[in-house]
Design a protein around this nucleic acid. Structure first.
Lengths: 321, 321
DNA sequence: CTAGGTGCAAATAATTTGCAGAGGC
DNA sequence: GCCTCTGCAAATTATTTGCACCTAG
C-alpha cells in the first residue's frame, strides 16, 4: 500500500507516525484510541498516548480514518481505505459491528436533504440491537475486514448481472414488438450484446466465487432494490402498454441513462478495488448503449419525419448527463 | 400533561425531580445536561448538577427522554413525548437540528436487519451538513418544537388523502372493468365510500390548515413515497393487465391490507396526538374495507363455484394480519 | 422509621494541551 | 538552525460516585 500521498502537505516524515498508521491499517475492526495505543505500545514502547491521539486526529482530517461513535462513550476509528462510507449494525451485547450499504436509502436521503435545502456532508446510519450470534449462539457467516472487499465485488457483479438480465429482457421484448425493421434490428443487436455481456459477467462471477469458497454464503453488503428485478424491469413493464418504436427507444435511453448514473455514482465513490472496477466498467458499457440508442432515436425520427418541435418537447438527449 | 405514570414504580415523589422534568419538557430543542442544569439553577439554585444528571438518566430509562449524540463530545436530550423516534439533519455550523421521518427508509432497514438476522432495538440516522439558513442567510420555515405536532398531523392527512385518492381511482377502474354485476356493485360501493371519505379528509385538512397560516409551507416531516401516488397506485396499475373480478378483489384486499398495516404501524408508534388519531382512524377504515372485500371475495368464489383448493393456494385472508 | 432522593466534593475516563527536548530537512 | 514531531505530565471536559444528610410515605 502506498502511503506517500497521505502525509500532510509539507509535513515531515516521521517514523512514529508511519508506525502508528501501519498498525492502524493492519487492524480489521473498529479500534478505539486506547486499543490502538496498546497495540502500538506492544511493538514500540517508546510511543506516547498523546501521539496516538494526535495521529488519529490527523488521519481523520486527512481522510485516512473515519471516526465512528457506537455510543460507548469513546470513539472508534476505521480505515477509510477499504471501502466507501457505509452504515453500521451494532450489537449492544458483543460490541461488534457489521456493515452495509444501501443505494436506495441514500437516494431517499438525498431527496429529504433536497426538500430541506440541506447540504449534506456526511451521513450516519446506525442500527443498535442484538446480532444473530448473540441471540442464537450459532455462528453465522460474517462480513469482517478482508472479506468486505470481495463481498463488495460479489454484490457489484450480482447487480450488474441482474441489470444485464433485465436489459436483455427489455431489448428482446422491444425487438418482438418493433414495427420498423430498422428499429427491430437495433433492438436485436442490443439484445445480442446484452446476452454476450451477460455471459462475460457470469463467467467473472464464477471466477470470483471460485477464489473463496465462503464468499457466496456471506451476507449481502450492498443492498439495492433494483438488484432484484434490474434497472430495466420498469422499462420492460412499460413496453406492455403498447408503445411505438420511438417511444421504446426513448424508454431504453432512460433506462441506460439511469443504469449508467447508478454504476458511475457508486464506482466513483469507491476506493480502488475490484468492485470499483466492475462498477465503472459497467457504467461505461451503459453509456455506450445509451449513446447508440440516442443515435438510433435521431435516425428513426428523421426517417419518420418527426419534426424538431416534437423532439424538443419529448427529449433532449444532449443534456442528459 | 399527566406525568403521574412517569415515576418509577414505588419511587417517591420528589419536587426536585418534578421541577427538572417540567423544565426539561418545556424546552423546544435538544438540550445538553449542562444546559438543563443552568436552566434549572436559574429557577431553583438549590439543585445540584448530579441530580440533573441522575434525573436525565432516569428519564431515559423511563422512556421520557431520548439521548442523542450529535458528535459534540457530550450528549443531548430530547423529550420523547412529542413524537416517535425520528431522524436528524444536523447543521455543523449553527448546531441546530431538524427532524424527519421516512417510512420507506424504515422499511428498507427492516429488510436489511432481517437479512442479517439482526434484532434491531434502535435506529439512528444523522445527516451532518450545512442548513439552508447558514448557507444562504435566508430564513426558511422551520420545524421546531410545537410546530412538529401540527406538521405531523398535516403529513398524516396528506398521506391519507393521497391513499384515498388512489383507492378511489382503483375502485372506479375496477368497477368499469368488472364483468360480474355483483362484483361491479361492490366496487361501485367502495368507490362511493372512498369518495365520501375523501371529502371528509379534505375538510379536515382544510380545518387543520386554517389553525395555523404557516402550516402549509412548513417542510415535510413524514416522508413517504407512497404519499405521492398512494398505496393503491400499484394495484390500479395491475388492473390494466386485464384481470377477472376475483383477481381484482384479491388485489384490492392486498392494497387494503398494506394500507391498514402502514397506518396501524405508524399510529401505534406515535404518542397521543392528532396525527396518531388520524393514522389509527384511517387504519380502522382500511381494515373494514379489507374485511368487506374478503367477504365479497368468498361470496363471488362460491357463486362462481371455485373450489377450496384454489382458495387455499391463492389466498388465506384469515391469516392476513 | 426507612428507602430513596439529594448536594457536595471527589473520582473517573476519554481526550487535549503545555512544554521541554528530539529529530528530519 | 528551524520547524515540526514527540513524550510526559498536567489540564480539561463530561459524567459518575461516595457519603452524609434530608424527606416523603
Amino acid at each position: 500500500m502506498d502511503l506517500s500521498g497521505l502525509r500532510p502537505a509539507g509535513g515531515k516524515r516521521s517514523s512514529k507516525r508511519d508506525r502508528i498508521l501501519e498498525i492502524f491499517l493492519g487492524q480489521k475492526g473498529h479500534v478505539t484510541a486506547d486499543e490502538l495505543y496498546d497495540l502500538v505500545r506492544r511493538e514500540d514502547p517508546g510511543i506516547g498516548r498523546a501521539t496516538v491521539y494526535r495521529t488519529l486526529q490527523w488521519m481523520v482530517t486527512a481522510g485516512i480514518a473515519h471516526k465512528v461513535d457506537f455510543g460507548e462513550g469513546r470513539s472508534r476509528f476505521e480505515p477509510s481505505l477499504r471501502h466507501p462510507r457505509h452504515f453500521h449494525l451494532i450489537c449492544t451485547q458483543c460490541h461488534r459491528s457489521s456493515e452495509f450499504l444501501s443505494s436506495d436509502i441514500e437516494a431517499i436521503l438525498e431527496e429529504v436533504a433536497a426538500a430541506r435545502n440541506f447540504a449534506t456532508a456526511e451521513t450516519e446510519i446506525k442500527l443498535f440491537g442484538v446480532c444473530e450470534e448473540c441471540r442464537t449462539g450459532v455462528k453465522a457467516p460474517t462480513l469482517d475486514g478482508a472479506a468486505t472487499e470481495l463481498v463488495f465485488a460479489r454484490d457489484a457483479l450480482r447487480i450488474a448481472v441482474a441489470t444485464e438480465r433485465s436489459g436483455l429482457e427489455f431489448y428482446s421484448r422491444a425487438a418482438s414488438l418493433a414495427t420498423d425493421p430498422r428499429g427491430r434490428e437495433v433492438f436485436e443487436r442490443l439484445a445480442e450484446d446484452e446476452k454476450h455481456h451477460l455471459g462475460t459477467l457470469e463467467k467473472r462471477y464464477a471466477e470470483l466465487i471460485a477464489t473463496d469458497s465462503t464468499l457466496e454464503e456471506r451476507p449481502t453488503f450492498l443492498f439495492f432494490k433494483g438488484a432484484a428485478q434490474g434497472i430495466f424491469a420498469e422499462g420492460a413493464e412499460k413496453l406492455r402498454e403498447g408503445v411505438d418504436d420511438l417511444k421504446a427507444l426513448l424508454i431504453g435511453i432512460r433506462c441506460e441513462r439511469d443504469s449508467h448514473k447508478f454504476f458511475k455514482k457508486y464506482g466513483d465513490r469507491f476506493e480502488d478495488s475490484e468492485g470499483k472496477r466492475i462498477f465503472l466498467e459497467f457504467a461505461e458499457e451503459e453509456r455506450e448503449h445509451r449513446d447508440m440508442l440516442i443515435k438510433e432515436y435521431r435516425l428513426l425520427q428523421a426517417r419518420l419525419g418527426v419534426g424538431r418541435a416534437a423532439r424538443r418537447t419529448q427529449v433532449e438527449p444532449r443534456t442528459a448527463q
